[in-house]
Computed example of a mutant assay.
Amino acid sequence: MITAIQDCVLINQKNVFYKHFTHTEQSRYTLVLLHDSLGCVTLWRDWPALLAEHLHCDVVVYDRVGYGLSDKMTTTVRGRDYLKDEAVFLKVFLEELELDKVVLFGHSDGASIALLFAAMYPDSTLALVAEAGHIFVEQVTLDGVRAAKTAYETTDLGERLVKYHGTKVDDVVKAWVDTWLSPAFADWTVEQEMAGITAPLLFIQGDLDEYGSLAQVDKTIQRAKGIAEKVIFPNVGHTPHKEVKELTLETIVAFLNKNL
């Protein structure tokens, strides 16, 4: 049986909303979920509870500052190191929750944050699963961001996101789009940093991912120092955990049960 509590923690004068799912049996570890560039706690839907149930672990999921039920971001202007900054923020967040070593699961931006956290804080990382992460800029990524920008400007995407981000929607989209399409971000890469990853790593991606090629997977796997495996889902796009939900769950459970 899974129980869940929700609360806020104050970090850098910002309230950060989170949910903590607890397995009523003895939990093996705590798994932290990291959402994508337009995501939040609510958009994970039943995924946290499913992972907690199948892995017999606790699961923590939170809204980064500016998203969901967390406080509004101070500015939409981001530097080249914003994903590293989020990894540092995650470390502070975990310390506030008195979590020392964790397993990470991140999607898209969240996967990049998970990869960077594992590289920067190897002693705090038991294992990680990266879903559709990015470690460098590709044309396909920029094309995908531009398409999302157009959808936001010409469809009801913004109205649908209000349900999850409230009055913060414009800031959420602007921060993402303006950063990735900025000329200053065009040559961004953290490929070298991946050599700092020593924890078991599973990188999953769809072969039709509209935001990144399989080079993102291969270059990450090649750099990582510990156990590093990849699973590529055929005919799947950017969100395997939604598009092939059961298969993704089975893949993650098998990997973590084998390596922890």
Rank of each mutant, 00 (worst) to 15 (best):
T75H: 01
V77N: 10
D81K: 13
L83M: 15
K84R: 10
K84M: 05
V88P: 03
L90I: 08
F93G: 03
F93V: 00
L94K: 09
L94R: 12
L94H: 11
E96S: 08
E96M: 11
L97M: 09
D100M: 03
V102Y: 11
V102G: 13
V102C: 12
V103K: 12
G106Y: 06
H107C: 08
I113Y: 11
I113D: 11
I113K: 15
L116G: 11
M120D: 02
Y121S: 01
E131I: 05
V137N: 15
Q139K: 14
V140D: 09
V140W: 12
T141P: 05
T141C: 13
R146D: 03
R146F: 01
R146V: 04
A147C: 00
Y152P: 02
E153I: 00
T155M: 02
T155Q: 12
D156K: 11
D156S: 11
L157F: 15
G158Q: 07
L161Q: 13
L161M: 14
L161H: 09
K163Q: 06
K163D: 01
H165F: 03
T167H: 04
V169L: 03
V172Q: 08
V172Y: 08
V172C: 08
V172H: 10
V173W: 14
K174H: 07
K174C: 02
K174V: 00
A175Y: 04
W176Q: 13
V177T: 07
L181I: 12
L181T: 15
A184M: 14
W188I: 06
T189K: 13
E191I: 04
Q192P: 00
Q192G: 06
M194A: 09
I197E: 02
T198W: 03
A199T: 02
L202R: 14
G206Q: 13
D207W: 08
L208K: 15
Y211N: 10
G212S: 05
